[in-house]
Nucleic acid binder design. Structure first.
Lengths: 209, 209
DNA sequence: CTAATAGTGTCTCTGAGACACTATTTG
DNA sequence: CAAATAGTGTCTCAGAGACACTATTAG
């Protein structure tokens, strides 16, 4: 049986776009947000791949990250479909941008990072990958507005100073330490002390509740 | 020239999905949110269409709405790509769900509406259109959380009672009238009076600033 | 006048921010 | 002790909610 749409045109008669996925993997280096990029023939770009037959976008994103950046186990968020017909000079290619976040310590040491803000990356990226990365930053901020560390960018146990520095890197904005503590202390559960204080009183270690 | 990806496979060798768009047009009827549906061979469904060659998703969504529901001039938001390989038994079809909102008065009188909440429509919809509609509700709420009437669901001039009833329909939740007024009065600009009060003191008319 | 709805005054509570204070460590 | 950082007490301000009050219309 051949399915036809309401105009009587058979489904297979439509020219079909290629569908791709690209992933903006964000991390925090020191006091800066950064996005993982790879070297490609078109310059720096986000890891991506074409969708395989009957594969889900999520699976394709995982495959791209695994094959091009040796990263597994991430949680992806759809950011939006980038669909400018001329965005790729190889032809008509739609690409679903995905966002993800990971602690820098879990990245392969060979990973290439580019620092970034919500206006875009600090180096030119190929295609429309700069807009994708900027969208990933907005998405990350949205999630960190409401929770302490939803993407586990910090290790299991951390101090409030470390949590605050993380938020300051994500939002590119300083937070007062007393207000910040009172804002998040209810979402955390304390443990023992931290002796690694080089100077001053050691800070308590917390976990997310 | 034939472009090849990193594995040496030519771009055209990939099997390509059909790409569709579906649009959840939301409106408010009385004190209820509702979504516009059309009758199709598969039962009630959202208006949608297959992407034409080199067409943008936004243009396809506008075309679907214009041809299947006689509605033009709406502003669409991408909600997400629905990509279950088995979501459509006609084959491998990805569909980008879009959200939009319009005042009921601007809808054609023949429009068929189904009331809805954030858990889904109150009648069974075809395919995964129920999830799409639920997503559109969440998206609408997100936008109405921060502004009085971003989608112009009310006429140019309205009373605070009408605005409050609108928000109560959107959020399926009652708001105290004094707090609600103080929350939004700063985003509005007043005009004259309204004499249409059947009883009681007439309310002032406002516009969004 | 009464009924009905519009709009305000005011109290409480909560959370953010500012600022200074106390607490705990190293040297 | 001084230096440095962790953590708290407390004041102010703004916004949400509760509640009762005043204001303006029709009849």
């Amino acid at each position: 049986m051949v399915w036809r749409d309401s105009s009587g045109k058979a489904l297979d008669d439509y020219a079909r776009p290629s569908v791709a996925v690209d992933v903006a993997v964000l991390t925090v280096t020191g006091d800066q947000l950064a996005v993982l990029v790879i070297d490609s023939e078109r310059g720096l770009s986000l890891p991506g791949t074409f969708l395989h037959p009957r594969e889900t976008l999520r699976d394709a994103a995982a495959r791209a990250l695994s094959s091009k950046a040796a990263i597994t186990g991430l949680d992806f968020h759809q950011l939006g479909m980038f669909d400018d017909p001329d965005r790729d000079d190889r032809g008509w290619v739609l690409s679903m941008a995905h966002g993800a976040a990971i602690a820098r310590e879990k990245l392969p040491h060979t990973s290439r990072l580019v620092s970034i803000t919500d206006t875009g990356a600090h180096e030119r990226l190929a295609f429309d990958h700069d807009s994708m990365a900027a969208e990933a930053v907005r998405d990350l901020r949205q999630r960190y507005r409401g929770a302490a560390d939803p993407d586990h960018l910090l290790p299991e146990e951390f101090t409030l100073l470390e949590l605050r520095r993380l938020h300051e890197a994500i939002f590119a904005h300083e937070f007062p330490k007393d207000t910040f503590r009172r804002r998040f202390i209810g979402d955390l559960v304390g443990t023992g002390e931290r002796s690694s204080a080089e100077t001053g009183r050691p800070a308590e270690l917390f976990r997310v509740r």
